[in-house]
Amino acid sequence: MTSVRDIPRPRVGDAPAAARSVHLSKVYGEGDTRVVALDAVDVEFPRGVFTAIMGPSGSGKSTLMHCMAGLDAVTDGQAYIGDTELSSLNDRQLTTLRRDEIGFVFQAYNLLPTLTALENITLPMDIAGRRPDQAWLTTVIDTVGLGQRLGHRPSELSGGQQQRVACARALASRPEIIFADEPTGNLDSRSGADVLSFLRRSVKEMGQTIVMVTHDPVAASYSDRVLFLADGRIVDSMTSPTRERVLERMKAFDGQPEA
């Protein structure tokens, strides 16, 4: 196991991290087919910070996100959401944790086609049987800026609008942390910019914690800091990223073609 202590740490405040990992490892397969997706990763995602995770294909960035979000079991080490250690939870507790403490935005297929935009936004709270905080909901909805389209079904919304609804859903239950997996991967640049601005505002104005996996330097430039993964390890980080600097850094990965 390689030590990761030499990796520069991001600025961390006194407040505990929204999520962190300790020596987190994930191994697929055995023997010849053994693949180490995550290799003893130590990482912290501080509260109120927009973190982007980048890296070439197969670097383990999605696996890291899945393990941190309790969607995938870890092989070794621990993942924490707030103070809760995920491997100690059973499926039911994990489900509750995802529902109450975590928000998700996926690359595609984020919304239930049978529900209206508004119903989709309040879905996690409906599942929990909780009434949404109306004032907060209004704030979130105003920020989404869908206006009259809230009563529409997803099939009647554009891709960008759908992703913004998905973001609003993630925000609406005020989770500890939001994980976004390539949220702009399926969008044109303009719609993507809308979604990213929305995520950015939710961090700046609402103090939300967001972790976003992306391979797009433009998307990464909206974040507060970027973590670079390669071969299952965090190899670098960058604060206040710009598109150019991120692009520059990515080129350094052995000239590997980007996925």
Partner: peptide, 11 residues
């Protein structure tokens, strides 16, 4: 998706 955003198996 439902499972990811917090619907448990019973539901």
């Amino acid at each position: 998706l439902l499972r990811a955003i917090g619907m448990d198996r019973r539901q």
